[in-house]
Amino acid sequence: MMKPDLITRFFQDTDETGRFAVTSSVTGVGYFVEPIGNGRGGDWGSYNPSTGNIEHKKGDGKNTGSVMLTESIITPENGFRNISHLGVGESPFGEISRRDTAYEAQGVRPC
Rank of each mutant, 00 (worst) to 15 (best):
P4F: 05
H56A: 06
G89E: 06
G61N: 02
G87L: 08
R19V: 06
F93Q: 11
L69V: 12
T75C: 08
V22C: 01
G61Y: 00
F10L: 10
P35F: 08
A102R: 05
T51A: 00
N82M: 01
R81E: 03
E34D: 08
V88W: 09
H85E: 08
G94C: 06
A21N: 09
G42D: 14
T23W: 01
E90C: 04
R40E: 13
T23Y: 04
N48H: 14
P92F: 03
K3W: 04
P92K: 04
T14E: 13
S24T: 02
T101S: 12
L6E: 07
A102V: 05
S97C: 10
H56E: 01
R9C: 11
T64S: 13
V33T: 05
K62T: 12
T8N: 13
S25D: 13
S25R: 10
M68G: 13
L6P: 01
S46R: 12
V88M: 10
V26K: 13
G107S: 05
G18D: 11
V33N: 00
F93Y: 14
K62C: 06
T51G: 03
D43Y: 12
G45M: 07
V108N: 02
G39W: 06
K3M: 11
G89I: 03
K57D: 12
G89H: 06
D5I: 10
S84N: 08
G79R: 00
G39E: 07
N53H: 12
D5S: 13
I96F: 02
G65R: 08
Y103H: 02
G39Q: 09
S97K: 11
E95W: 03
G45F: 08
K58G: 08
D100P: 00
T27P: 01
R9P: 06
S84M: 03
R109L: 09
G59I: 05
F20I: 07
S25A: 13
T101Y: 06
Q12P: 06
S72Y: 04
D13R: 14
G61H: 00
T70Y: 07
P49G: 09
A102H: 05
L86Q: 05
N53C: 10
C111P: 11
Y47A: 13
Y47W: 15
N48G: 12
T64L: 05
Q12V: 09
Q12F: 09
G42C: 15
F32L: 10
N38R: 15
V29S: 02
S72N: 10
R98F: 04
E16A: 14
T27L: 03
K62P: 02
R9K: 15
N53M: 12
T23Q: 11
G41P: 05
R99L: 03
F10D: 04
E104M: 10
S24V: 00
T51F: 03
V29R: 05
L86T: 08
T70P: 06
P35R: 09
E34Y: 02
Y31H: 02
T17E: 09
D60G: 04
T23R: 13
R19I: 07
E77D: 15
T70E: 13
T70S: 14
T23P: 04
E90T: 05
P76Y: 01
I74K: 00
P4V: 05
